[in-house]
């Protein structure tokens, strides 16, 4: 182990981690929005949009992110649509994550009994109020474990972004291996960086899940 080498190249990893985190964060937020939209399209059975959403979910869930990125980054420019590396990464992550988030939201919304909605309507709530005050709060607490798992999954998926020429953690590690042949050090730092990024998310998810289990029993 060459500690000097590690110390010298830590800044590169910090920089790359920042990129991974920021793109992951933007991707997660966007996919949450997309997911929620799709979940409601399906819940309210909006015609046409609903079929499009169903096709989208199947397409995105059954193809790997790597292939989606290749299509976005290398394929689309041939059709005259050029997107920057960051753009591709974010669009790809959002395309992939949207369907996973949608499924998580959908299962949450489905778990809220029909009686809840009908009672609220009977009390004179408007549809938007029903969603805002009755369905969403209950649905969210059910779907949070799945949402957390998806966030973890999406951050892990950011590891393929080196193929669209983004200098993420994998890219830095591969670079260092290629340039200096310091494989052990480069890989060690890679593993540690990912642990630092991903461990807090999964611990937080576990804590949140435990709290929500109390909510289920009404305590």
């Amino acid at each position: 182990m060459d500690t000097e080498f590690i110390a010298e190249y830590i800044p590169l990893y910090v920089e790359a981690s920042r990129l991974t985190i920021s793109i992951g964060l933007i991707g997660i937020v966007l996919s949450l929005i997309v997911g929620l939209l799709i979940a409601f399209i399906q819940y309210f059975k909006v015609p046409v949009l609903r079929q499009i959403a169903a096709v989208y979910i199947e397409l995105s869930r059954n193809t790997p992110l790597l292939v989606q990125l290749f299509f976005l980054y290398f394929g689309l420019p041939k059709a005259g649509i050029s997107i920057s590396s960051e753009g591709c990464a974010i669009i790809g992550l959002c395309f992939l994550g949207g369907s996973y988030m949608a499924e998580a939201f959908r299962s949450g919304i489905e778990s809220v009994g029909k009686g809840q909605e009908e009672s609220a309507l009977a009390l004179g709530f408007q549809r938007s109020q029903v969603v805002r005050y009755v369905i969403l709060p209950q649905a969210l607490s059910v779907s949070i474990p799945a949402l957390c798992a998806n966030m973890n999954f999406l951050v892990k998926e950011t590891s393929v972004f080196s193929v669209v020429a983004l200098a993420d953690l994998m890219y830095v590690a591969k670079d260092l291996i290629g340039l200096y042949y310091k494989t052990d050090e480069a890989l060690l730092m890679l593993v540690i960086s990912y642990l630092i990024i991903l461990l807090p998310i999964s611990i937080l998810a576990a804590l949140l899940e435990r709290r929500l289990r109390y909510a289920e029993f009404g305590n």
Binding site: N152, K156, E157, T158, S159, V160, M170, A173, K174, I177, Y181, T183, D184, L187, L190, V191, Y194, L195, L198, L199, S202
Partner: peptide
């Protein structure tokens, strides 16, 4: 379980493919 599931699969691939060879 936790280590394998928390690491991106690509990192594991790098560990085995590049790491084993070198170490």
């Amino acid at each position: 379980l936790e280590f394998i599931r928390i690491m991106p699969q690509l990192v594991l691939l790098f560990l085995v493919f590049f790491g084993l060879t070198k170490s």
